[in-house]
Design a protein around this nucleic acid. Structure first.
Lengths: 151, 151
DNA sequence: TCTGGTTTTATAATGATTATAAGTTATTGT
DNA sequence: ACAATAACTTATAATCATTATAAAACCAGA
């Protein structure tokens, strides 16, 4: 494990510069705009696996003219561009995650928090899937997190 | 005359007797009714990971008074009773599966079909989940099935 | 500054699911 | 057996996340 760089989930990270955000979008062939930069920054500094409304409500404070449709549009754009991944772990609500290494997600049914955990994905793929073109892998667990178990 | 119906998994299933269906419900503390028996029979004889509407439309042919709400109610009841599992693998549409051994699901993005595959679930659980109460595990893959790859 | 294209916004539409209330059917107690 | 009561089903309305649409705002180049 890396001792030098702290990369724990749920913590805020140093805000990236506009320069860095713009470059990140360009790499993925997405033109920059105020809203897109804001939403990308949100995703990079929050690791809450946010819903559209979590993003919308927070950014609304700073930009009261923001439209919920813009958040939907932008996330769909990021999705197509390969910037984010969408989680179907919460009933009737899409959750988003900046695309990083493959990992599983655990959702606590009590507090609703979503945790990451490592998965050895080689162990997943069985012989039966020979001949299948795999584009996307998802591992979702549900239950109760340690904090909620203590109550 | 019993015509063998074609299933997507290639297997035909003998229709269970009313006796067997009733017993199966009783074991799970679900009172039997015409509609519940019908829906349970559908789930046992089809292995298509059906949606509410797939079940509703097929049963409607035999029982034209059937309500879509009944199918929703019954599946939610089966879910609470532990008779079925719900899959969140298709966007904006719940799919149901008679509860059997743990296995993964592969959804073909081209034809929409859902395939089962074996997963060694011991390999899934990492050290990080010590202390978590796991109630439910899901493994969803998406991509293209061999048949659709050939086109 | 005009012009054409892109992005954002506000609002309406969609569609799966749930809630509600009324109508049926089954069960219980006498 | 028969009313009383509970359980189940049905039809319809409501909900709510998401998408579609069209108008307004923004931006880059001539």
């Amino acid at each position: 494990m890396k001792a030098t760089k702290k990369q724990t989930d749920g913590y805020a990270h140093e805000p990236p510069t506009v320069q860095q955000l713009t470059t990140m979008l360009s790499v993925h062939k997405v033109r920059p705009s105020q809203q897109r930069l804001m939403i990308l920054e949100y995703l990079l500094t929050h690791h809450n696996h946010p819903s559209v409304d979590m993003i919308y409500n927070e950014l609304l404070i700073k930009v009261p003219t923001l439209s919920r449709a813009t958040v939907y549009n932008t996330l769909n754009l990021f999705l197509k561009a390969g910037l984010v991944r969408v989680l179907d772990i919460v009933e009737n609500e899409a959750r988003y995650d900046i695309l990083t290494d493959f990992h599983g997600h655990f959702k606590c049914n009590t507090c609703g928090e979503i945790f990451n955990f490592r998965v050895i994905d080689e162990a997943l793929v069985s012989e039966e899937l020979k001949g299948f073109g795999i584009d996307d892998k998802n591992v979702y667990f549900k239950g109760t997190c340690p904090k909620c178990l203590k109550k």
